[in-house]
Simulated assay, not measured.
Amino acid sequence: MNLTKRALMTGAAMALGLAASGAPVLAESHSEKTKVGFVYVGPVGDGGWTYEHDQGRKAVEEHFGDAVETVYVENVPEGPDAERVMVQMARDGADLIFTTSFGYMDPTINVASKFPDVKFEHATGYKTADNVSVYSARFYEGRAVQGHIAGSMTESNIIGYIGSYPIPEVIRGINSAYIHAKKVNPDVEFKIVWAFTWFDPAKEADAAKVLIEQGADVILQHTDSTAPLAAAQEAGGIIGFGQASDMSEYAPSPRVSSIIDNWAPYYIARTQAVMDGTWESSNTWDGIGPGMVGIGEITDAVPEDVKTEALALKDSIASGEYHPFTGPLKKQDGSDWLAEGETADDGTLAGMNFFVEGLEGEIPQ
Rank of each mutant, 00 (worst) to 15 (best):
residue 261 D to V: 15
residue 331 K to A: 07
residue 284 T to K: 07
residue 326 T to C: 01
residue 264 A to W: 13
residue 304 E to T: 12
residue 352 M to S: 02
residue 266 Y to R: 15
residue 357 E to Q: 14
residue 322 Y to G: 06
residue 243 Q to W: 05
residue 251 A to C: 12
residue 327 G to S: 04
residue 301 A to S: 11
residue 357 E to L: 10
residue 282 S to F: 15
residue 246 D to F: 15
residue 314 K to S: 05
residue 358 G to L: 02
residue 323 H to Y: 09
residue 359 L to F: 07
residue 291 G to C: 00
residue 354 F to V: 13
residue 356 V to L: 05
residue 320 G to H: 06
residue 244 A to T: 11
residue 335 S to H: 09
residue 313 L to P: 02
residue 353 N to Q: 10
residue 312 A to F: 02
residue 262 N to T: 13
residue 277 G to M: 06
residue 296 G to Q: 07
residue 358 G to Q: 01
residue 342 E to L: 02
residue 247 M to Q: 13
residue 320 G to E: 00
residue 254 P to W: 11
residue 240 G to H: 04
residue 249 E to T: 12
residue 282 S to V: 15
residue 261 D to P: 10
residue 346 D to R: 14
residue 269 A to W: 08
residue 245 S to N: 13
residue 350 A to D: 13
residue 340 E to W: 09
residue 287 G to P: 04
residue 237 G to R: 05
residue 273 A to W: 00
residue 252 P to D: 09
residue 280 E to S: 03
residue 256 V to R: 01
residue 241 F to A: 03
residue 305 D to Q: 12
residue 309 E to W: 06
residue 355 F to S: 01
residue 326 T to L: 08
residue 270 R to C: 06
residue 263 W to T: 00
residue 243 Q to K: 14
residue 354 F to N: 13
residue 252 P to N: 07
residue 302 V to C: 04
residue 344 A to M: 02
residue 358 G to H: 00
residue 265 P to F: 05
residue 282 S to K: 13
residue 299 T to C: 09
residue 293 V to N: 02
residue 272 Q to G: 04
residue 259 I to N: 10
residue 325 F to R: 03
residue 250 Y to K: 13
residue 266 Y to L: 15
residue 345 D to P: 01
residue 279 W to T: 00
residue 245 S to V: 03
residue 336 D to A: 11
residue 340 E to D: 10
residue 343 T to G: 11
residue 306 V to S: 10
residue 271 T to M: 01
residue 287 G to I: 00
residue 353 N to S: 10
residue 252 P to I: 04
residue 357 E to G: 08
residue 308 T to V: 14
residue 275 M to F: 07
residue 304 E to G: 04
residue 237 G to K: 08
residue 256 V to K: 07
residue 251 A to R: 15
residue 239 I to V: 05
residue 339 A to S: 14
residue 357 E to H: 09
residue 260 I to F: 06
residue 251 A to Y: 13
residue 293 V to G: 04
residue 263 W to F: 11
residue 256 V to Y: 01
residue 326 T to D: 02
residue 315 D to Q: 09
residue 353 N to T: 14
residue 247 M to D: 09
residue 312 A to P: 11
residue 326 T to M: 01
residue 237 G to Y: 04
residue 283 N to A: 13
residue 308 T to Q: 14
residue 323 H to L: 02
residue 340 E to K: 13
residue 287 G to W: 01
residue 307 K to I: 06
residue 279 W to C: 00
residue 333 D to L: 09
residue 319 S to D: 03
residue 349 L to R: 08
residue 355 F to P: 05
residue 291 G to Q: 00
residue 249 E to Q: 15
residue 258 S to C: 12
residue 329 L to D: 00
residue 309 E to G: 10
residue 307 K to R: 11
residue 264 A to H: 07
residue 254 P to V: 03
residue 284 T to F: 07
residue 319 S to M: 01
residue 347 G to P: 08
residue 303 P to R: 03
residue 269 A to M: 06
residue 320 G to L: 12
residue 253 S to A: 14
residue 322 Y to M: 12
residue 350 A to L: 14
residue 353 N to C: 04
